[in-house]
Design a protein around this nucleic acid. Structure first.
Lengths: 259, 259
DNA sequence: CGTGAGGTTGAAACCACTCAAGAAGGGTGG
DNA sequence: CCACCCTTCTTGAGTGGTTTCAACCTCACG
C-alpha cells in the first residue's frame, strides 16, 4: 500500500483510524476535529481480536488503558467473595470500558469477551494529557462517564423496583436500542450472552429468565430461537418494561403474574 | 470584619473558602494548590441553607451547577411513572451531586434535602473551563465521577445478589464509614433518612426494613432508637453485609427471594 | 389532648428461588 | 454419518423470603 503523501490515502490505515471509524460519533472523537483528532488517534492502539472467554482485565489490575469495543461484546462482572457474581454491564460496539478504574487507578470488575471481539486500547494517562489541551475531548470524556452513570441508575431502578418480567422486557428493549445505535438491526438480533449472563445482570435465576423468555414468546411480543431474538411488538415490550412492582394496570390486559 | 490586605485574614471568608473547608480533601480541591485553588474558589457560590424537604433540582432541569454537600444530607431519586420511585443515593458532606446531568445537560433525578443542609454550587461550564487549565482539577473531577460509578456498582450487587438482611447491613456499614470519613462518628449516629427512604434505596418494603432493623438490634449487632443507631459489633455487621443470596452459613437459614 | 406522620408488628398471599429431571444443539471421534 | 458427551436451555414441583394488607403504637406538635 502507499503512504498518505500526495493526497493518496492509505485505506487500510484510514479504516483503522478514528477518522474512518463508523463508531466515531458514539466514541471519544465525537466533537473532536482536525489536528485534535489526529492527536487522539495517535494514542489509540488496536489489539488482536479477543476470542470467546478471553479476559481484557480483571479486578485489581492497574489501570493502563481504557477500552472501546469495536465489534463483539464484552461482559463486566463484580466479583463476589463466594462465586455468585453480579453482571454490571454488557458493552457493545462504540461503548467504553474500564471507567470505574479511574477512581483509584485499579479496575474493580472483570471484563471478558462473550464472542469474537475487537477493541481499541487508549492509554489513560496520555488520554488525560491530551484532554487537558483539547476541551472537546475533556467534555466528551466527562459526558461518556456521566452517561454510564445514567445507565447504571436505570439498572438500579430495574433491580430495585421491577418484577422479573419487567426487568427482562427492559433489558431486551434497551439492548435492541443499543444494537440499533451501533449500526445493527434492533428488531432481529443474536444475543451475545447466555441465559445465565442475563440472569446475572438482572438479579434473577437463570430458570426464571428462561421461563419468562418463553412467556413473552407465547404472548407474541418477541420470537425466540436459542440466542436469536426478533422483536414482534416493540410497543408492548416497552409497556411491559415500564411496569413497576405494583403495576396492576396495563393497556392490553398485560398485567403482572408469576414466573 | 477587616479585609485581607496587610496579611490580616478575614476569618469569615476563609471559613467559607475551599482553602479553609474541612472537607477539602474529599472534594474538588483535592490535589489543587495555590493559585489554581483560588481560581476554583472563585467559582464556588455557597447557597442559603436548605430546609427539610427543599428541592435542589428536579429531573429535567437544565444543568447549571454541580453541588457539594457541606452539611446535612441530600437524597436523589429516579422518578418512576407511577410514583414508586427508586432512591439512587444519599449524599453526605463532601460528596458531589448532579454528576449524571453532564451526560446530556439535564438532570435525571430529583434531589431534596432530608434535613437542614448546606451546599456549595459550582457552575459546571465554568468548572470545565478551569479544569482545562488545571490538570489536577480535571483529574480530580474524573476521579470523583468514577468513584460514584464504583459506588453504584456496589449498590447493584446489593440489589441483585443480596438478601434483605445483607442489604440493610451493607447499608449501615457503608453509611457508618462515610459518616466517619466526613468527620462524624461512625459508631453512633442519627439516620438522616426515614425507613421509607432506606426501603426505597434498598429495593425493599418499608416494613421489611423496620423488621430487620429490629432483628439486628435483638441480636446485639446494633442498637436502634428511632433514628439513632449505634454500631455495637462492626465485625458482625460487615460479615452479615457480605453474605450473598445463597448464604448457607447464616446463623439461621437466610435464603433469598424477590420483591 | 387530639391529630397525624412515622414506625412497629402480625398474618396471609405470592413471586421468584431451589432442586431436579429432561430436551436440544454442537462437537468430537469412531 | 451416527453415537456419544457436554454444555446450554427448558420445564415442573415445592419451598420460602418478602410483600401486602391491616392494625396498633408513639412521639411531636399545636
Amino acid at each position: 500500500m502507499t503512504d498518505d503523501k500526495e493526497g493518496v490515502v492509505d485505506l487500510g490505515r484510514l479504516r483503522r483510524s478514528c477518522a474512518g471509524c463508523s463508531l466515531r460519533s458514539l466514541c471519544l472523537p465525537a466533537g473532536v476535529l482536525g489536528d485534535d483528532l489526529a492527536r487522539l488517534d495517535a494514542l489509540v492502539r488496536s489489539r488482536l481480536p479477543l476470542e470467546t472467554g478471553d479476559g481484557l482485565f480483571r479486578s485489581g489490575d492497574t489501570l493502563e488503558n481504557l477500552f472501546v469495543v469495536r465489534a463483539g461484546c464484552v461482559r463486566t462482572t463484580q466479583p463476589a467473595t463466594d462465586g455468585e457474581e453480579q453482571v454490571i454491564g454488557f458493552h457493545l460496539p462504540g461503548e467504553l470500558l474500564g471507567l470505574d478504574a479511574i477512581s483509584d487507578g485499579h479496575h474493580h470488575c472483570d471484563a471478558i469477551a462473550l464472542e469474537r471481539t475487537n477493541v481499541c486500547a487508549v492509554p489513560f494517562d496520555q488520554l488525560e494529557d491530551v484532554a487537558c489541551h483539547v476541551p472537546g475531548l475533556q467534555h466528551q470524556l466527562l459526558r461518556i462517564i456521566s452517561r454510564e452513570l445514567v445507565q447504571d441508575h436505570q439498572h438500579l431502578v430495574a433491580l430495585g423496583r421491577r418484577t422479573a418480567r419487567a426487568r427482562l422486557a427492559l433489558f431486551l428493549h434497551s439492548l435492541s436500542q443499543r444494537l440499533y445505535a451501533a449500526g445493527y438491526s434492533g428488531e432481529d438480533f443474536r444475543l451475545p450472552m447466555s441465559r445465565d449472563d442475563i440472569a446475572g445482570y438482572l438479579g434473577l435465576a437463570l430458570e426464571t429468565v428462561s421461563r419468562l423468555l418463553g412467556r413473552l414468546s407465547e404472548e407474541g411480543v418477541i420470537a425466540v430461537e436459542r440466542r436469536w431474538v426478533r422483536v414482534l411488538d416493540a410497543a408492548s415490550l416497552a409497556s411491559i418494561a415500564g411496569e413497576p412492582v405494583t403495576g396492576q394496570r396495563a393497556p392490553d390486559g398485560v398485567g403482572r403474574q408469576a414466573n
